[in-house]
Every structure is written in C-alpha cells, then in structure tokens.
Computed example of a mutant assay.
Amino acid sequence: MIFQQFFEPDSSTFTYLLGCEQTRQAVLIDTVECDVEQYVQALASHGLTLVYTLETHVHADHVTGADTLRKRLGSKSVVHRDAGAMCGDLLVTDGIHLSVGHMDIEVRYTPGHTNGCVSYYVGDRIFTGDALLIGGCGRTDFQQGNAGQLYDSIHSKIFSLPDETLIFPGHDYNGNTVSSVGQEKQNNKRLGGQQSREAFIEIMANLKLAYPKHIDVALPANQACGNIAVKQSA
C-alpha cells in the first residue's frame, strides 16, 4: 500500500493518502482545502487516481477540500449518514466496506466527538479522526458531543483491535505522528490505564476549553462538503 501523511499547521490537521500499488487507485482521508495542490501533486508523483475523499466527521476547525477535489479530479465524497453533510456522494454506516483497488477500508462508527464520527480501519492501521488522539481525544461539548458515547465508541471500535494496530489521528498538537492501540490503552491521559467511564465523563465535563476559533466558518462549509460559495458567504 502506498501511504503518505500530510500536516496542515494552522489547524494541526493530518491528511492521509492511501493508494493501491496494483491498480493505482487512491483515497484521501480528512483533506484540508488550502492543501489541495499538495494532494494533487502527490497523486501525480505516485501515478494515482483519486477515487474517494473520506471524512471522519464534519470538521469545525478547517474546511475540507472534498468539493474542490470532486470538481477537479472527479472523486467522490464519503461521509457518515448522520454527519449532517447530505452533499456527500456516498453516505456510509457502521460496518460498510469500501474496496479501492486491493485495499479494503472498513467503516467503524465512533460517535461522541460528533454524532457522525467514523474511523477507517485499513490493514494494520486505523484512522481515528478526532475520536481518539495521541494521548487524548476529541472534545465533546459541541456538535452533539457526548462523553459517555465517545468512551463507548473508543472501547468497542478501537481498543477492541489488536494492540499492535497503528493509530493515525485527525490532529496532533505535540509533534506526534502515530501511536498504537496498546500505547493508547496504557498511556492515554483521558482513557488509558483502564480509566472508568464515569471518571472519563467527569474529566470531559471539566476541560473548560475555549470556543473553537474556526467553527462559524468551517462548520457550514463542511456541511456543504467544503463548497467554496458556502464558505465565503458564512
């Protein structure tokens, strides 16, 4: 499998390119609009055709490049059916498998950060979006967030995987790029060490986080799959 990780520093967002070596078909996970040219160049350098842009959720901190890539390259946008982005070309549910060349991509429904969060399980790795971060997790005080639901999602859909499964999150703010299920089960500051559900809910209720600085622009734009006109009128 061809694999490349991108990092957008303003929102500390990771985007992932996955490509099939045999068929040269590819997907991008959690694109950022301002980095579209980087993705196009990377696809060309690997000789890949973009089939899907996969969203882990409707983002509140950056605008997705899905609409721009769809118009430019003919790719299809994939979001969960409860994400609030009916503009998606493919609305997925838990347990759906996407076949891209010889790659099998399993959709795992992991709500709690938002009501429409999914993680994508591919081979030896899982792309967790904002549900599970390295050493932390997504906030639960916006977009139908629910701390108890997030705890259940992480334990049933991510921590249930083999310990050696690689974790690639949607963001990192501390210079990390990858973790593993075993490392997060042991060391995650909010969930590790067999943290109880009740204690986790208490932690999340007392974070006192600032209002997301890009949410008023990013959320309506992403509900339209990153449509530029919606972004500019917001």
Results as ranks from 00 to 15, higher is better:
V230Q: 05
L150W: 07
V78M: 13
V40K: 15
L209K: 05
P212M: 14
G148W: 04
H57N: 06
T93G: 13
F6S: 09
G193V: 09
A42Q: 08
I154W: 05
D10G: 00
I201D: 04
G88P: 01
N174L: 11
G138R: 06
I167D: 03
S233R: 15
V36G: 03
G148F: 02
R108T: 07
D94M: 07
T13R: 15
F168M: 15
S196A: 10
T13A: 14
T15Y: 06
G182L: 11
R70H: 12
V107Y: 07
T31E: 14
F127Q: 03
Q194K: 11
V58Q: 12
I203G: 00
V107P: 02
L73I: 02
V181S: 05
C20D: 15
A26I: 09
T56P: 03
L48D: 00
R24K: 15
T128A: 11
Q183A: 11
G84W: 09
S233K: 15
G226K: 08
G193K: 03
E21T: 10
I126A: 01
V36M: 08
F200N: 03
S179T: 12
D35E: 13
L91S: 01
D104H: 04
M86C: 00
F200L: 04
C20H: 10
I126M: 03
V27D: 10
K231M: 14
N227W: 05
G135N: 09
A221I: 10
Q223H: 06
A221N: 10
N227E: 14
V79P: 00
H97Q: 13
E37V: 03
G193H: 10
K185Q: 12
A205Q: 14
V63Q: 11
A199E: 13
M1R: 07
T56L: 10
V51I: 15
D141L: 01
V217S: 03
G193F: 10
G138K: 04
R190N: 06
D67V: 00
N227A: 05
E184A: 01
D163F: 06
V27C: 11
V178A: 09
G95I: 04
V78A: 09
Q186W: 06
V32H: 14
Q195W: 02
E198K: 15
V63I: 15
P9D: 14
I215G: 00
G138N: 10
Q5Y: 02
D216P: 01
N187D: 15
G193L: 07
A221C: 05
F14C: 05
L73P: 01
D61S: 13
Y173C: 04
D124E: 14
M86V: 02
N187G: 02
